[in-house]
Write a protein that binds this DNA or RNA. Sequence first.
DNA 1: GAATAAATCAAACGTTTGTTTTAATATGCG
DNA 2: CGCATATTAAAACAAACGTTTGATTTATTC
Lengths: 212, 212
Amino acid sequence: MSQPDTKQRLLDAAECLFAAEGFHSTSLRAITGKAEANLAAVKYHFGSKEALLEAVLKRRLVPLNRVRQERLEALRMAARQSGVRPPTEAVLRAFIEPTLAFRDSGAGAEAFLQLVGRAIAEPDDTIRNLFMQLMKPIFLLIYDTLGDALPELSDTERFWRLHFSLGALSHAMCLVGRFQILPQGVAPRPEADDLTKMLVNFLKVGMEAPCD
Amino acid sequence: MSQPDTKQRLLDAAECLFAAEGFHSTSLRAITGKAEANLAAVKYHFGSKEALLEAVLKRRLVPLNRVRQERLEALRMAARQSGVRPPTEAVLRAFIEPTLAFRDSGAGAEAFLQLVGRAIAEPDDTIRNLFMQLMKPIFLLIYDTLGDALPELSDTERFWRLHFSLGALSHAMCLVGRFQILPQGVAPRPEADDLTKMLVNFLKVGMEAPCD
DNA sequence: GAATAAATCAAACGTTTGTTTTAATATGCG
DNA sequence: CGCATATTAAAACAAACGTTTGATTTATTC
């Protein structure tokens, strides 16, 4: 090998291009071109274009979800032992903080956030199912943990408020770095910490709002 | 003409397919096949595939945004005359209520909501620019009206809270009708009224939350 | 009813797509 | 060295894409 792992270069290039152009609009020729690899390299190392997408998603999403899972389960554990409810804000933070902090963790990370933020609304069944399969466990865990934090909330309200929150998060993830409409007086690119603070602060009160 | 307007049938078919499969994944052959029209009909009536998308978007989005604009401007007017701030909830409702109520207005309306809910995160520049051009005026108007309602809020906070809200709304729009993860005890498809109430209720407190 | 315009049609265009095949090259090991 | 395995390279594949063409049918106008 001349350069670091072709496999790695393909993952990096695919992540970047999938995020910028979308999965279907990105050709294997564009990916292998950017990665300075041969066209057949994708088939050789991954098997297919879809398998490449799966690898791109898993590379970052599995560790990220593991962190989220650990933080959420630690919250449940601590709450159960001390006999008090986990604070809503802590539950939201356990899910959101790793996501947006992740943004500054490396070169392709920001692109990856766009990719994931868009995957949640993906029209293609194969892609959405792949993404949902990766997200379902953590989704159900935060749903349950929010139930611990807000036991008086009905299942339906909790479900929809969680989805409103996921929508706000994914939208924030997509928006980071690509603004289309910027009114005067608005900082173009907040720090990850500030964005997390704003988002958690916004969602917390929504989650805890009385139902009527 | 054998059937009602080919142009109309093309719009309906395209709306449905764009929503279900996405713009790039929908072929002109699929559209003209569903519309029972000739392949060249799109070129003849609209000029191109992109122009067809523009027509699909404008057909519903222009009237919808007109309603939103009227309601928002009526709020500003009433507030200015009475000397009190427009209520945050009313501002949100002016924007959201027409959207979700629209869902029950016709056959393709629900599909259209998915299409629009996804367009906001669209990777393709041409599509996103087209959508943004249609949405920019109403976006700036609600941004200003929220400024009337919440003058103590900083521009940056107001901007991001608005985006969180748009994310929640677009996510709710995409989700309507296609659930992937349904915990027990959750109603699968709330009425538009109920969904609006939940969403507005959720966003209102987030908008009005203290900054720290 | 002839002449003009509007609409539809089947067929083919050149390109690009993901995939596959076959050959060449580098690498590791005894 | 020589063999075997892993990787890269180049070329070709059929299929699908949006677009275009030129002929034909339908509708409108004088």
